[in-house]
């Protein structure tokens, strides 16, 4: 098992955002966590990355309890995150954004080779390599955020609301890239999404969050057919 989250509790002051959520992700899996706004999806991802602290519960990565590690230490052991709304570094060029993703890994990876591979996956980034981050379109920024996370050859990629603010065609493109990374590169991905159809279509399994608790879980195909999921998230 690559990642296991047990009995996770997250609160912001008096507001309980996540109450006792538990799930796991096997190596090579693409797992989706879906749910409405405020369900606690992003909080879970941020707690795995160490950006928000947990009140209770544990996060185990490759058999090691990592709850006590700082965010940058979790990144160093192979967890990378594509944050909501991409959050590329606006005043750094595309190339510098990518280099920042490879920080501290010069001895472990061939940065130039890895950059060339990313340019082949996201050709638009090569065209824009000397442009500043803030001059890219929303879709390009999203691609840069994914590439920036991938340059370090992570073992687990956390992807937070990658479809947010993107036009449907771009959403399809980004999800196709994630699917290929999972199927062809064997990259383990934990995807947090509101776009239930797109995320379940590329996932192995899924968890449905409702007001901070895990309401339904199962294979992606089963979830897509689940009457409650259909009613609440697909409007059928």
């Amino acid at each position: 098992m690559l990642l296991e989250v047990r009995d996770l509790h997250i609160s912001y002051g008096d507001i309980q955002a996540v109450c006792g959520v538990g799930f796991h992700l096997e190596e090579g899996e693409l797992v989706s966590i879906i749910g409405a706004n405020g369900a606690g999806k992003t909080s879970i991802l941020q707690s795995i990355m160490g950006i928000v602290s947990t009140k209770k519960g544990s996060v185990i990565f490759k058999g090691r309890e990592i709850s006590g590690l700082a965010s940058h230490e979790r990144a160093r052991i192979g967890i990378r995150m594509v944050p909501e709304r991409s959050r590329v570094f606006p005043r750094l060029t595309v190339y510098e954004n990518l280099l920042a993703g490879a920080y501290g890994l010069r001895k472990k990876i061939d940065v130039e080779k890895r950059t060339e591979w990313l340019y082949s996956v996201f050709p638009v980034l090569k065209e824009r390599s000397s442009q500043l981050g803030h001059t890219l379109s929303g879709g390009e920024q999203q691609q840069l955020a994914i590439a920036r996370a991938l340059i370090s050859e992570p073992e687990l990629l956390l992807v937070d609301e990658v479809s947010m603010g993107l036009m449907p065609k771009l959403v399809d493109e980004v999800f196709e890239v994630l699917r290929q990374l999972n199927k062809e590169q064997g990259l383990s991905i934990l995807l947090v999404e509101q776009n239930v159809v797109a995320s379940l279509a590329i996932s192995t399994r899924g968890y449905v969050l409702e007001t901070g608790t895990c309401a339904i879980q199962g294979d992606a195909a089963e979830l897509a057919d689940n009457p409650r999921v259909k009613e609440v998230y697909l409007g059928h």
């Binding site: 950006i51 965010s71 990378r80 570094f89 920042a100 920080y103």
Partner: peptide, 17 residues
């Protein structure tokens, strides 16, 4: 620079603020 631009995003890339 990464910390200057976005400290939280920088820390998710292995950079210690």
């Amino acid at each position: 620079y990464a910390i200057r631009e976005d400290e939280s995003a920088a820390s998710t890339l292995g950079i210690s603020p």
